[in-house]
Design a protein around this nucleic acid. Sequence first.
RNA 1: CCGGAAGAUCGGGCGGUCGCGAUGCGCUGCAAAAUGCGUAUUGAGGAAAGUCCGGGCUUCACGGAAACACGAUACCGGAUAACGUCCGGCUGGGGAAACCCAAGGGAAAGCGCAACAGAAAAAACUCCGCCGAUGUCUUUAAAGGCAGGCAAGGUUGAAAUGGUGCGGUAAGAGCGCACCGCUUUUCCGGCAACGGAAAAGGCACGGCAAGCCCUAUCGGAAGCAAGACCAAGAAAGGCAUACGCACGUUCGUAUCGCGGGAUGUUUCCGACCCCGCCAGAGGUAGGUCGCUAAAGUCGUUCGGCAACAAACGACGCAGAUGAAUGAUCGCCGAUUACAGAACCCGGCUUAUAGAUUUUCCGGCACC
RNA 2: CGGAGCGUGGCGCAGUCUGGUAGCGCACUUGUAUGGGGUGCAAGGGGUCGAGAGUUCGAAUCUCUCCGCUCCGA
Length: 129
Amino acid sequence: MSDKLILIKKRPDFLHVTRNGRKVVKSGFVLQAASSRRSFLTPVYRIGYTASKRIGNAVCRNRAKRRLRAVCRVLLPREAVIGYDYVIIARHAVLEMPYQKLFKELKFALTEIKQETDDVPLFAKNTNE
RNA sequence: CCGGAAGAUCGGGCGGUCGCGAUGCGCUGCAAAAUGCGUAUUGAGGAAAGUCCGGGCUUCACGGAAACACGAUACCGGAUAACGUCCGGCUGGGGAAACCCAAGGGAAAGCGCAACAGAAAAAACUCCGCCGAUGUCUUUAAAGGCAGGCAAGGUUGAAAUGGUGCGGUAAGAGCGCACCGCUUUUCCGGCAACGGAAAAGGCACGGCAAGCCCUAUCGGAAGCAAGACCAAGAAAGGCAUACGCACGUUCGUAUCGCGGGAUGUUUCCGACCCCGCCAGAGGUAGGUCGCUAAAGUCGUUCGGCAACAAACGACGCAGAUGAAUGAUCGCCGAUUACAGAACCCGGCUUAUAGAUUUUCCGGCACC
RNA sequence: CGGAGCGUGGCGCAGUCUGGUAGCGCACUUGUAUGGGGUGCAAGGGGUCGAGAGUUCGAAUCUCUCCGCUCCGA
C-alpha cells in the first residue's frame, strides 16, 4: 500500500460511523471512529472530513478541511487502527489554532481510540460487518 | 497647505523544505489501458458572490408566413455578437463650483382612481363673500330689501381652470394693455431629441400610465443535474394491418399506403422529418465525453470628442467531481478587508481593511 | 450548481391582484358567574407588515436592490 489516504465518499458510510462509533471531543475538532462496514481486499483505514455551514462561508470551510488534512497526513499512518473508518468534524477554533496545539490534540485523540480498541481482538472487528 | 469632485491601478512580496490537483516526458509493462515512481511546467477573484439582464452551446421532429395572447424595453444619436450595458448629447432638478441625480414616450383613443377635509375633485359650480350702477319695492331723504351682476378675496386639501403690474368698473373679470408662461403656425440651426427668432390666439388642454391601456421595438421553451456514449441489471405481454410459412393455432419479419403528430394558441404553405397503438418491467448513481483556445490577454501604430473599431507583433493562461493551494522557517511590510472557479463569455448589482496615482473645483499663503 | 416559492401580534392565517380603516381564530390580561377550577359571558392590551431605496399627496399593497427560510431537479 502507498501512504496515500483513502477517503470516505458515501453518505451512508458517514452515518454508520456517527451512529456506531466512539467519539472524542477536542477544542478544534470532533473525532469519530468505528470499524468499517465494508470489507476490502487489503485491510486499510479510511478518513472522512466534515466542515458544516456552522464553521462559516466557503473560504472558512475549505481552510478548516485543509488544516485537518495536513495534520492527518502526518499522524494517521502512525496512529490509526487498520480496518477502521475515521470521521473528523471541524469546529470553529480550528481556524485560528496554532499548528502545534492541533497536532497534540489529534495525537491524543487517536491514542485514546487506539487504547479502547485494544481491548477487542482485531479479527472480531473485521467480521462484524 | 486645507476642504471637495470625478476616475484609474493594486489588493501582500521574495527565497528554502515536506505535501496536494492537472498536463507533458521517461521508467515499470509482450502491447494497450490502468497503477506506481521520477522529473519539468502550471494551479482561484476583483468581485470567483447574488443569479438581475444579454449571448454562445445542447436538447425539444425542420423551415417560412399571418393574426391573437403573454412578457420585456421606452428623451435623441452612436457603440456592440447582444443587452435593461457603455459612450456622447438634450430636457428637468440639486450644488458656490468641479460635478452629481432622473423608468424621462402618449392623459384632445377609451376605461378607471382621488380616503378625510372642503361649497365644489373634473362636470362645471357658488358656502362665506363683494356689488346692488340698472329695474323695482319701502322710505321725506340717506339707507335697506328683492330681481340681478361678479368670481377679486376667504375656507379645505397633495392638487381648485394662468402669474405680476397698470388701466377699467357699481363690484369685478384677459374685459383691455405691458412683461413672463402656454398653445398654434412659419422661418433659421441641428442627423435627431431639442434650441433660437417672428407672428397669431385671450388661454381652450388639471393630476395618476412603477392602474388597465395605446403606440413603437424586441422575444419559441428549457437548461451542462442540458445532452451523447459505454458498462451493469431487469421484464410480460395483448391488439391492428401486410407479408412469409401455414387448413387453423403457433412462430418470424415489417409498419409502405391510409392515418396521426409540434415547442404559447389558431390558421396556412413547403419539405417529407418523426411515429404502429395499448399496457407493463427494471434502474436511484458506476465510467468516458461535453470540459475549456476564447466576441481571449498584453503592446505598438492609425481612425474617432468618446464607447469602440482596424492592422501588425507577442503570449499560450485552473479544469476538480466527498471536489486540488496546506504546514513550517528567514527577511521586508503589516494587529491584512470582502471573500474560493464547477459549461463558457459581455454587463449590472451587492460586500470590501488599506495602498498608489491622474485630472479638475473652491479657499488661504508666497512669487 | 441550476430552478421555483414564502416572510403580517406569542402561534397559525386573511388583507397585496384593484394604494387611503391592518383584521380573524387560538393564546394572554382584567371583570363577571362558582366554595374553588374548567366551560360560558363582557371588556382590554399587544404588530419596525423581513431590511433599505424609489414612484405617489399617501405604500403591508406598485417598482428595484439586499437578508433569511422552505421546496424541486439526472
